[in-house]
Nucleic acid binder design. Structure first.
Lengths: 98, 98, 98, 98
DNA sequence: CCCGGCGTTAATGCAC
DNA sequence: GTGCATTAACGCCGGG
C-alpha cells in the first residue's frame, strides 16, 4: 500500500489522539484536492459550452464549423511544420503511386 | 458554395460600396468568432494546467493520482445515474446473473 | 418501466410456471445479446491492436505514423470534397486576413 | 527529412539500378503498410456494424440499448479494477466521507 | 426531415 | 520511447 502511507506509522506508533489528528488532516487534504479538481473541471466544462455556443452562432451565420476548426488549427501551428507535413505527405503519396 | 453565402447577393446585386461593406461585416464577424474561440480555448488550456498541478501536489502528498481520478469519475457519474437508470441497470444485472 | 416489459403480463397473468419460463427466456435473450456484443468488441480490440502493431513496424522502418495516417485519411475521402474543403479554407483565411 | 531516410544513401552513393531497387522496395513496404491498415480498419468497421445490429435487435426485443451499454461497461471494468485498485478506491472514498 | 446531444473513436501531448 | 490521459472529431440516435 504505497498511497496514504503517511499516517500508517502514526496509526501504529503514536498515541491515539495524534494518530486521529493525522488521519483527519489527511482526509482534509484529500477532500481539498478532490474539490479543487472538481471545481476546475466544472469551469472547463462551462468554457467548452461557450465554445460550442460560438460554433452554433457561426453556423447560423452561414459559416461552416468544420472549416472554422480547420482555420483555427492552422493558425495554432507553426507555418514551418505545416509545410514540412505537406512535403512529407507528398513524398509518401508519390512513393505509394510509383 | 453554401457557406459565407450571406453576401453573394450583395456582391452581385448591389452597388459596389454596399457589397464591400457587407464583405467587411462578414470578415469582422468571422474574425470575432475565431478570436473568441481561440480565447476560450486558451482559458481551457490554463485550467487544464491548474488541474495537472493539483495532481502533482496530490502525488507528492502520497496520494495516487490514478485513484483520485477514479474517485472523481465515480462521484461525477453518480448524479448522472439518477434513479431510473440505476434501477434498470440493477434489473438487467440480476437478469443476467439468473 | 418500458424495458423488459415483455414478461410483465406473463408474471401477472399466467400460471407461475409459464411466467417463470418467460422470465428465463428473457434472461437468455439478454445474456445472448450481452455476450455477442462483448465478443465482437473483443474482436475489434484485437484488430485495433494489429493496427497499432503495423504503425509500430512502420515507425521502425523509418516511416512517420503521423504522415501515414494523413495519407490513409486522404485516400479515404473523395477527391472532390478534399478540394472543396481546401477552397473553403482558403476563402475563410482570406476573409480573416482582409 | 527524418522519415524514409533508409534509401538516401542508396540514391546518392550507389549505382542507379541499386538505388532504384531500394526505392522500389521502400515503395512496396509503404504500400503494404497502408493496405494492411486499410484492410484492418475495414474489418473493424464491419464489426462495429454488427454490434449496432445487435443493439437494434435488443431494442426491438424491449431492452434499452443505453442500459445494456452501461451493463457491458460495468462488466468490462470490473476485471480491470483488480484487488488493489478497488481497495485503494475504497480507502480514499472512506477518507473523503469521514 | 432537420437539428442538437451523446457516445464512441482516433489523435495529440504528457508523464514515467 | 512507451503507455496513459486528455481532447478534438465523427457518426449515430432521439426529439421537434
Amino acid at each position: 500500500m504505497e498511497a496514504m502511507q503517511a499516517d500508517i506509522e502514526d496509526i501504529t506508533g503514536r498515541s491515539a489522539s495524534n494518530a486521529m489528528k493525522a488521519e483527519a488532516r489527511t482526509a482534509d487534504r484529500l477532500r481539498s484536492i478532490v474539490e479543487r479538481v472538481e471545481r476546475l473541471e466544472e469551469e472547463k466544462r462551462l468554457l467548452a459550452n461557450d465554445i460550442k455556443d460560438i460554433y452554433a452562432e457561426a453556423k447560423s451565420a452561414g459559416f461552416l464549423p468544420k472549416v472554422i476548426r480547420a482555420l483555427i488549427r492552422e493558425r495554432a501551428q507553426e507555418p514551418a511544420e505545416m509545410e514540412e507535413m505537406a512535403t512529407l505527405l507528398d513524398v509518401y503519396r508519390r512513393a505509394m503511386d510509383s
